[in-house]
Design a protein around this nucleic acid. Structure first.
Lengths: 199, 199, 199, 199
DNA sequence: AATGAATGAGTTTTCATTCAT
DNA sequence: GATGAATGAAAACTCATTCAT
C-alpha cells in the first residue's frame, strides 16, 4: 500500500470508528455528520470523500460488526475439538448469543439492520475470512460432515433468521422469556431442523 | 358516537391514512409532519392535537395494519371446518403469508417495525377483536384443543418470529428461495415445533 | 385587506427592500438569504414562505423598479402639454435616460436583467398603472395620435431595445460616447423610426 | 510552437471546451471548477495554472465565440462581390443573425455576456484577424467606401446594440415577432441609419 | 378545537483553494 | 508542471414546534 493509500485507510477508519461510538451513544438520527467528523478530528468536507451519507456508514458498520461476531465464534470453534456438524452449529449459535448478550448495545445496533442479503453475500472490504461469508463457512462445515444435508442454504437461512429475530426480543427485553429459557427450547429445535434437512 | 367525536375520528383517520401513504412512498425519514397534514388537508398545528410526533403515528399504523392482517386470517379460519390445533396454526400462517405476498408494500412497512411486544400486548384503540391480541387468540385456540401445550407463549413467539423474519427476505427479495419453496420447508417445521411443545 | 394579509404584505416588503439594498451594495452572488433576513429583521425560515430563492426576489425587484421608472416618466409627461406622438416618445425616452443617468446603480441592476418579456407582459402585483404595462401605455398614446402607426408593438420593441442596450454602455462606461452625444444621434433616429412605421 | 507549449495549449483547450459545454448545459452558477476539470480529464489543481476563476473562462469564451461568428460572416462576405458599404453591413448582419438562429444555445450564452467593450477592444489571444477587432474591420470597410461616414464608431455601436438586443428576444422566444419579420423591419432601418450618418 | 404564519436552531452539502507529493 | 486529497468557511434549506387568532 502506498503512503497515500495508507493515509486514506486511516482516515476512513477514523470516520467509521467515530460514527460507531456516536451511533451507539446517541442513535443514528441524532448523530450529525459534523459530530462524526469532529470526533474523528477531520474536516467536515472530508466525510464526503469517503461516504455518501451517514446511512452508508451505518451499512458498512453493520456488515463489519456482524462479520466480526461471526469470526469470533469461528475462532473459538477452531480451538475446540467438536466433530459433529450439528454440535458445531449449536456451538456457533451459542457463542454468538453469548457475545450479543454481553454487548446489548451492539445487538441493538446490528439486529435492527441485519438482513439475509448482508449475511449471504460477500461484502467488499468486509470479508469474514479472506472474502468468505458466514454462510460460505457454514456450508463448508456441512460438506466436511459425513451426513449430507439437502438444501443447505435454506437450512442456514432458517436457523439464522430464527436466532437473530428471537435473540433481539429475548436479550434486549427478556420478552417473552429469558435467554437461558430460550436456549433450552432453541437448541433442540435447531437439532431437529438439521435432522429434518438430512437426506 | 357524538358528532364531535365522529369529527375527531375522521380527522385522526385522515392523518393516519395520509401518513401511511407517505411513509410507504417516501420513507418515514423523508416524510415531514407538514407533508402529512398537507395531504390530509388539515392545518399543521392540528397534528399535535392527535399525535406527539410521526413515530407515534408509525407505531399506531404498524399495530393497526398487523392487527388487520391477523383479523383477516381469523375471519377466514372461522369459515373453514378445521379441528386440529396444528392445522389451524398452519392455516393462519399460510393465510398471512399469502396476504403479505399480495401486498409487498405493506409487508415492507410492517416487518421493519413489528416486534413481539406489539404482537403480544393489547393496544389501546387497536384491538384485534374486542381488546384481544393475536397471541390471546392463539392461546384460546390451544386451550380448545384436546392436546395440551406447555409454554404456549414461547411456542407462539418462536413461530411468529420465524415466520415474520423469513417472510421478509423471501417475499420481498425471493432470497434465498421462493415463497412456495419456503412454505414446503416451513410448515413441516412448524408442525414439528408444535409437537415438541406438547406435553 | 385582513390584518393577517396586511402583515404578510409588510413582511414581503421588508424582505424585498432589504434584498434590494444588499443586491446593490454587494451584488446578488455575494448576498446570502441569511443576510437578507437579518437586515429585514425576520427569521431565516420566513424567507421561504415568500420566495423560492434569491433569484425570484431579483426578478420581482427588476420588474418593480423598471415599472417605477416608467411610471415616473409617464407622471411627468402628464404634466406637460405635449401633443405629438413622436414628441411624447422622445420625452419618455429622455426622461428615462435622465433617471437612469442619475441612478447608475439602479441602471446596473436593471439593465442586466430586463427583457422584453418583462416590459411587455403584465406582472402580478407589479403593474405600471392599474395592471397596465409600459407597452400598453405606449400603444394607447399611439391610438390617441391622429397619424396611425402600423405594427406598433414592433416599433416599441425596437425603440425599447435600442434605448436599453445603448444606455447601459453609455451611461455606465461613457462608451463609446457620452450621454449627450448619444441623445444627439438617438432622438433623430427614433423620429425616423416612428415615421418609417407610419402608414 | 515547442512541444511543451503545444501541450499547454491542449490543456487550456480541454478546460475551455469542457467549461463551454457545462456552462451551456447547467449554467455558470451551477458549474463548479471540479466539474470542469473532471470533464476535461485533468486534475482540479491544474485549473489554477491556466485561469483565475470560472468567470475568467466565461469571458475568454464569450470573446472567442463572438469573434468566431464575426469571422465566419467576414469570410463569407469576401467570397461575394458586394461593393456598397451598406450592402456589406446588411450582409454581415444577416449572416450573423442566421448563424445565431441556427445555434440558439450559443446565442443564449453570448448575448447574456456580450458587451460593447468586448466587441470594441482587441482581446489578447482572441483576435478576429491578426489582432483586428470586429469594429476595426467595419471601419476599414467604411474607409474603402467612397461615401464617407461621420462618427463611424457611433454608427457601428448603435447597429451592433440594436441587432444584438433584438436578436436575443426574437430568436430565442419569437417575441414580439419572428426572425423574418424582424429582418423585414430591421434592414431598412439600418440603411436609414447609415444614410443619416453620411456626411 | 383548529389554524397556519413564523421561528431559528440544526443539518446537509458545496466548493474554491491550498499544498504535499 | 501536474496532481488530487484535504480543508472549513459559507450557503442553502428543512422542519418540529409554538402561539396568536
Amino acid at each position: 500500500m502506498g503512503k497515500v493509500e495508507e493515509n486514506k485507510k486511516k482516515k476512513k477508519d477514523a470516520i467509521v470508528n467515530s460514527a460507531f461510538t456516536l451511533f451507539i451513544d446517541n442513535g443514528i438520527k441524532d448523530t450529525s455528520i459534523a459530530d462524526i467528523m469532529k470526533k474523528a478530528e477531520l474536516a467536515k468536507g472530508t466525510f464526503y470523500l469517503y461516504f455518501k451519507d451517514k446511512y452508508e456508514v451505518r451499512d458498512y458498520l453493520v456488515r463489519k460488526k456482524a462479520a466480526q461476531i461471526f469470526e469470533n465464534a469461528i475462532e473459538e470453534l477452531k480451538e475446540k475439538n467438536i466433530t459433529e456438524f450439528e454440535d458445531k452449529i449449536i456451538f456457533i449459535v451459542d457463542n454468538i448469543l453469548d457475545q450479543l448478550s454481553n454487548n446489548k448495545i451492539l445487538l441493538k445496533f446490528i439486529s435492527k439492520n441485519l438482513s439475509w442479503g448482508i449475511l449471504r453475500h460477500s461484502i467488499e472490504n468486509v470479508p469474514v475470512n479472506d472474502g468468505e461469508t458466514a454462510a460460505d463457512y457454514i456450508e463448508q462445515l456441512a460438506r466436511e460432515s459425513d451426513r449430507p444435508v439437502r438444501n443447505l442454504e435454506m437450512l442456514v437461512f432458517m436457523i439464522a433468521e430464527l436466532v437473530n429475530s428471537t435473540a433481539h426480543s429475548v436479550i434486549l427485553y427478556q420478552q417473552p422469556v429469558t435467554l437461558p429459557e430460550l436456549k433450552k427450547e432453541l437448541y433442540p429445535l435447531i437439532i431437529t431442523m438439521i435432522h429434518s434437512f438430512e437426506e
